[in-house]
């Protein structure tokens, strides 16, 4: 287990710049999510750390070793792929033991470590099965066991949960987090699922167009996005129209900044509340979704969204004129 350090890495594919002077550190034993829309370079960054391709410029360190010129076979990493990439011609045990056999681990030791890794992912009974005889979630676990059985320095996950259905995905998230804690391995996780990134990781790095936009703990990135892209990408953001700014209490001077509010920070009332920021609008739609409900409110021609527990949203009668109130400290200021 080791820290991973990426410094000033640039990677081009022909004319397109996939990574543009990226610098980012992953601390030892942390669970780090790389998040971004497709084409943002997150997978390229992961594969560059893994060593599947080499960066044109920049340095990559895994632990105390400079690896930018080391090919993937020699980097001592564990990797999990989107479609699991289990070897169909081998049993579960042979899949897990592949990396051990490559490293010429003694047979008894190999058996012990395979059993240990399968026990860790709770698949001890499946050792002799073929991958084709397993369910999606079980294949996932085998892939994880295979990636960690060699005690790699870093575990790299390339959208490993995106092929699972939702309930299974949540189970696997919990499982993944538990196993990562248990063995304390530095983990870098690529995803385009914001919720997954927020749930799983200690730190999040947000990428856009081959650049790192923001790095920080999930709560910080969610509550204090640095720009409009991050604010809109990690959850919804309601943008405050300029005409209202003078009437609001803002966390900082307005010059060069835009201001936004998260949908769940809003409360809806027929009056403006004391000590709160507020804008006036018209309720156009209320969508009931069990415990929660979503309201769409038109504010100066913009669509605002409010999310709250259904029972906390008052019934609005008449023409739907409402005030949306929120605490001044919930106003997010981002670079315009």
């Amino acid at each position: 287990m080791s820290a991973v350090d990426v410094q000033n890495v640039t990677k081009r594919f022909g004319q397109t710049v996939a990574l543009d002077d990226v610098s980012i550190s992953f601390e030892d034993g942390g669970f780090f999510a790389l998040l971004g829309p497709s084409g943002s370079g997150k997978t390229t960054l992961l594969r560059t750390i893994a060593g599947f391709h080499f960066a044109e410029t920049g340095a990559i360190r895994i632990g105390d070793r400079n690896v930018e010129n080391v090919p993937v076979e020699k980097r001592d990493i564990g990797m999990m792929f989107q479609n699991y990439a289990l070897f169909p011609n081998m049993s579960v045990a042979d899949n897990v033991g592949f990396g051990l056999r490559v490293r010429k681990v003694a047979a008894a030791e190999e058996r012990r470590r395979i059993a240990e890794a399968l026990e860790l992912v709770q698949l001890g009974a499946m050792a002799e099965r073929r991958p084709s005889q397993l369910s999606g979630g079980q294949r996932q676990r085998v892939a994880l066991a295979r990636a960690i059985v060699t005690n790699p320095k870093v575990l790299l996950l390339d959208e490993p949960l995106s092929a699972l259905d939702k309930t299974l995905r949540v189970d696997m998230q919990i499982e993944l987090k538990r196993i990562q804690r248990e063995i304390g391995i530095t983990t870098i996780f690529v995803t385009h699922d914001q919720e997954e990134a927020l749930t799983l990781s200690d730190r999040i790095g947000i990428l856009k167009d081959g650049r790192i936009v923001q790095v920080g703990p999930p709560r910080e990135v969610y509550d204090k996005p640095v720009d409009a892209f991050t604010a809109g990408f990690l959850g919804d953001a309601n943008w405050v129209p300029e005409s209202w700014l003078s009437a609001l209490r803002l966390p900082q001077p307005a010059n060069g900044h835009s201001f936004a509010v998260r949908p769940e920070a809003l409360s809806m009332a027929q009056a403006r509340l004391d000590g709160m920021n507020a804008v006036a609008g018209r309720l156009t739609q209320r969508v009931f979704a069990g415990a929660m409900a979503t309201c769409l409110i038109e504010v100066e021609g913009q669509k605002w969204k409010l999310i709250a527990r259904d029972r906390d949203i008052p019934e609005i009668t008449g023409d739907g004129a409402v005030w949306l109130n929120w605490r001044p400290e919930d106003t997010m200021a981002v670079r315009a």
Binding site: A50, F52, P71, V72, E73, K74, D76, I77, G78, M79, F81, Q82, N83, A85, L86, F87, F98, G99, V102, R103, R146, A147, T150, L156
Partner: peptide
Amino acid sequence: DLVDAARSMG
């Protein structure tokens, strides 16, 4: 990916 996975395992 199978080849990549094998490479990642050394």
